[in-house]
Design a protein around this nucleic acid. Structure first.
Length: 808
RNA sequence: GGGCGAGUGGCGGAAUUGGUAUACGCGACGGACUUAAAAUCCGUUGGUCUAAAAACCUUGUGGGUUCAAGUCCCACCUUGCCCACCA
């Protein structure tokens, strides 16, 4: 008997699948379409480990399942090749990024191939290829034309290690998201995408998405919509006005001082001579303070009095104006009214500097300290007795009529900074002309090709290495023909990934980014699978670009990913994250080399637990899934070797049909671990049944074919091999998904649990067609139950086919 | 401080959404086959008390609702991730 040897069959089928192109998606088909996408990887130096592979295993199981279910499936793969990971790898290994990408995509592709994933490789894309970034630049121009790309000199996050600026989203707790080093601020002239224009739609449209609540919450939080009002405080003895933003205008009567951010432009005119030295000193130290330090929440409040006063518009109260760095310059107006009785931060500040505290919102009974909730108004003149929310509206409308306030919605989100002072990215397609300013490179001259350079080491002077290639930099203005210089910064890698899912619909088009028809057919993405780390970066950017394209009539939908799911992380067997420094990384290559094969790795990835929860990799568990495959294999081999002519029992068909149902429902619900458990259970049952049936009938042939089909989405190689052994037509992966028959789901007997007062006391096996009366009669005559039923039960509860409960 | 999740045998995890808790797998133990081991196959396996049966206990803790709670409600404990002086 032939032994199960994955080392032999897996490469064989991979070759056959590749040659026969069975996974290529058809751009026109009568079948319903399904676009299943996993986030395309950045091919860094390190090979993929079993954690990365899980993501692709999930997508592949679904792609295969839906294909067999009669869908026209698009399941593509490509490379997010531009950006820091690739460039850093190149620098470290002293090779060019071009070479590094070639090496690394080759390695990644080989890893994906050996896993037997059913990608349509004819659609492979690479974001660092001119044929791709030509269109990334084209979209930059689209944004530029629409006023959504602009240049601004400003202080920005700067990573000294990676020698580039970073977007807000790419700074995590004061550290660079790539290298983990602390970041600082640097003033540079930078390009931005105006994502703030889309803040409201990005927040509102989350409603219509089938995404994990956590990701939606993160985006909502990041966009940070808050409704409030801007209120003007007149400066006493001067003409100036200080405009503050507040979400709680109802607490205006409790405002006892004003706080300006140290960067606030009015400070100069407000400071009195006596306070000048102290204020200047304070501003100097707080600006020098590292941003991280300034953002420490539990840091003691600091601040200084300006010597000036402002007038509270609701009651003409004179309130002191302070400067403190707990007020951020970039949000709202950079100035606040402080209400210490009802805001924790203002309370701390008032306590420390001994400022007045006035309560205007009634606290709940027994509440101590600063109260930030809602309630009835007190000490607020004619607003007394109103609820906070009513007072809020009334005060704002009253002040508005005097021109002293207006309703205002603020967002925390800032525009997306996309300039990178690095070599390895799509050049920003702009030419700077003395006369015409920033001029877009005409679309018919795209791509602006990234020139090959000798050294791509970042300079650190705030300009990319492209600045050191005069023959590239110096050019002529497309508008006036005069001398001009190219923009030398490149685009953030996230620009490339903001539209790649569209390119897969039409990956080789040379005269447009994609054909409208093809995109209309394939998009939006039906199932998107990726890590939660993309919650506020890629997923926000891609949504914005999609909306821009929608507004430009390029596409007919304004959300790219209808359904999003985050896979759980695979930890090392020791429970820690896999990392080179811990030395606990497990690559699929190692497991395959040990002889388990890709099919076992794939099964393990899904069987280890719910796919959306993290789990520690189990080395022992590999034996379990391998054993399962081997048991299926053995069933088929023994069947093929058996003498024909026996009959099969109903138990066989019942087992198979029950499994068809369970596996079909479970995969549809993405409950892969229980689908695999059901297959294991079925195989265990078949082992028992085979000794009775001697398995050699046509029923067994059909049953084994079905079992092979049900296994195919998870373990495609062994399934394909057994499909061939059973002499079935074509590929199992192109076969029709089995359908269960309800006849076989009918069982002859049912098991009834008998409870007395909710406690299980006996179990009965009765004919399935028994009615309530018969079941109760049978239960009452049971010896064990009789013991408990000394008196007539008060109540009898019967759950059909399940249980009976006597209440005594 | 805010948001989202999680807590079930020795371990990873199931549980028809309120109806027989511990499916499936790992590990462990026993048996068959073998000169022997591995592999394979067949059993047993939540705990206490037992010779055994019976009984009792058991889904982080404490309450509650219900004929019935891992599941629903309230309070608390532990833990993971994300955001965090955004007025």
């Amino acid at each position: 008997m032939q032994r199960y040897n994955p080392k032999e069959i897996e490469p064989k089928w991979q070759k056959i699948w590749e040659d026969s192109k069975i996974y290529e998606a058809d751009n026109s088909s009568d079948k319903p379409k399904k676009y299943i996408l996993e986030y395309f990887p950045y091919p860094s130096g390190a090979a993929m480990h079993v954690g990365h592979v899980r993501n692709y295993t999930i997508g592949d199981a679904m792609a295969r399942f839906y294909r067999m279910q009669g869908f026209n499936v698009l399941h593509p793969m490509g490379w997010d090749a531009f950006g820091l990971p690739a460039e850093n790898y190149a620098i470290k290994n002293n090779i060019s990024p071009q070479t590094a990408i070639k090496e690394n995509t080759g390695k990644f592709k080989q890893q994906l191939m050996q896993m037997g994933f059913s990608y349509d490789w004819s659609r492979e894309i690479n974001s660092s290829d001119p044929s791709y970034y030509k269109w990334t630049q084209w979209f930059f121009q689209l944004l530029f034309e629409r006023g959504l790309a602009y240049q601004k000199e400003s202080l920005q996050w700067w990573c000294e290690h990676d020698k580039t600026v970073l977007a807000n989203e790419q700074v995590e707790a004061g550290k660079c998201w790539r290298c983990g080093n602390s970041v600082s601020k640097k003033s540079l002239n930078q390009w931005f995408f105006k994502i703030t224009d889309y803040a409201e739609r990005l927040a509102d449209d989350l409603e219509k998405l089938d995404w994990p609540d956590g990701v939606k919450a993160m985006q909502r939080n990041w966009i940070g919509k808050s409704k409030g009002a801007e209120v003007d405080f007149r400066v006493e003895d001067a003409n100036g006005v200080i405009r503050v933003f507040t979400t709680r205008p109802d607490t205006l009567f409790g405002a006892t001082f004003i706080v300006l951010a140290p960067e606030h432009p009015l400070i100069d005119t407000l400071v009195t001579d006596s306070e000048k030295i102290k204020v200047e000193e304070y501003i100097k130290t707080s600006v020098q303070k590292s941003e991280i330090e300034r953002q420490e929440t539990d840091r003691d409040k600091t601040g200084v009095f300006t010597g000036s006063y402002a007038i509270n518009p609701v009651n003409n109260a004179k309130v002191p104006i302070w400067v403190a760095d707990y007020v951020l310059p970039g949000y709202g107006t950079g100035a606040i009214m402080a209400v210490p009785a009802h805001d924790e931060r203002d309370y701390d500040f008032a306590k420390k500097f001994d400022l007045q505290i006035i309560e205007v919102v009634q606290k709940p009974e027994g509440f101590e300290g600063c109260y930030s909730g809602e309630g009835l108004m007190v000490s607020s003149n004619h607003y007394n007795g109103l609820s906070s929310s009513d007072a809020r509206e009334k005060i704002v409308s009253d002040l508005s009529s005097q021109g002293a306030a207006e309703e205002k919605i603020n967002y925390k989100i800032r525009d997306w900074l996309i300039s990178r002072q690095r070599y390895w990215g799509a050049p920003i397609p702009i030419i700077h002309c003395q006369k015409d300013g920033a001029v877009a490179v005409p679309k018919d001259q795209l791509p602006v090709v990234l020139p090959e350079v000798e050294s791509f080491q970042p300079t650190g002077d705030g300009r990319s290495v492209l600045a050191s290639i005069p023959e590239w930099v110096y050019t002529t203005c497309p508008k006036c023909g005069g001398p001009a210089q190219r923009e030398t910064d490149t685009m953030d890698g996230f620009a490339c990934s903001s539209w790649y899912f569209l390119r897969f619909a039409d990956p080789h088009s040379d005269n447009e980014p994609f054909s409208k028809d093809k995109v209309k057919y394939w998009l939006p993405v039906d199932d998107y699978i990726g890590g939660a780390e993309h919650a506020v970066m890629h997923l926000l950017y891609a949504r914005m670009w999609t909306k821009v394209m929608f507004d430009s009539n390029l596409i007919e939908f304004d959300e790219p990913f209808l359904k999003l799911r985050n896979q759980g992380m695979i930890l090392a067997p020791d429970g820690r994250k896999m990392s080179k420094s811990w030395g606990n990384v497990i690559a699929p290559d190692d497991i395959i080399a040990q002889g388990y094969g890709a099919d076992s790795v794939r099964l393990m990835e899904l069987f280890i637990g719910p796919w959306d929860q993290s789990a520690a990799w189990s080395i022992e568990g590999m034996g379990g899934v391998f054993r399962f495959l081997q048991r299926v294999w053995t069933l088929v081999q023994e069947y093929l070797a058996s003498e024909k002519g026996h009959i099969d029992t109903r138990a066989l068909h019942q087992s198979i049909h029950r499994t068809i149902q369970k596996v079909t429902v479970d995969i549809s619900e993405m409950s892969f671990n229980t689908a695999i458990a059901a297959l294991m259970e079925c195989v265990n049952e078949l082992y028992k049944i085979k000794s009775v049936d001697k398995y050699s009938s046509e029923g067994w042939q059909n049953s084994l074919e079905t079992l092979v089909q049900l296994t195919a989405p998870f373990a495609p190689h062994i399934a394909e091999e057994m499909w061939a052994q059973l002499e079935c037509e074509g590929s199992v992966h192109a076969s029709d998904w089995p359908i269960w028959s309800d006849d076989y789901l009918v069982v002859e007997t049912m098991k009834i649990a008998v409870q007395v007062n909710g406690k299980l006391r006996a179990q009965l096996v009765l004919p399935s067609e028994s009615d309530e009366e018969e079941v109760i009669a049978a239960a009452r005559s049971d010896e064990k139950i009789k013991k408990y039923l000394t008196t007539e039960p008060e109540k009898v509860i019967y759950v059909a086919g399940r249980l009976i409960n006597f209440v005594v």
